[in-house]
Amino acid sequence: MLFFSYFKDLVGREVTVELKNDLAIRGTLHSVDQYLNIKLENSRVVDQDKYPHMTGEQDAGNDLGLRLSVRNCFIRGSVVRYVQLPPEGVDTELLHDATRREARGG
């Protein structure tokens, strides 16, 4: 449950969620549940050209014809590939301790 707790702490911050279909959506993290379903507010599709490292294969077959500019967006946890976090939202000390605790099974 480490991820779940961790993501809950990030509520209110700007994150970018990259889906397994290569779509990337940026928005304010509104909530996350135990299945890591993610709700974003003020979300929008990220211009992928700005994120060359995120483009796995940007082939023509992936033309979703999508210009999504939406207020609320619900993303199914199982389709998420990456979540990009703001650096200031990453408390490495805390994360370190938490992962160690988890590894010890406590």
Partner: peptide
């Protein structure tokens, strides 16, 4: 985080491959 040199890209990337099945 530094692939582009852009400040806004200097962010940590948390990868959780096969996130859901993993959980």
């Amino acid at each position: 985080g530094y692939s582009n040199g852009g400040h806004d890209l200097a962010r940590t990337m948390l990868e959780y491959a096969e996130l859901f099945s993993g959980l």
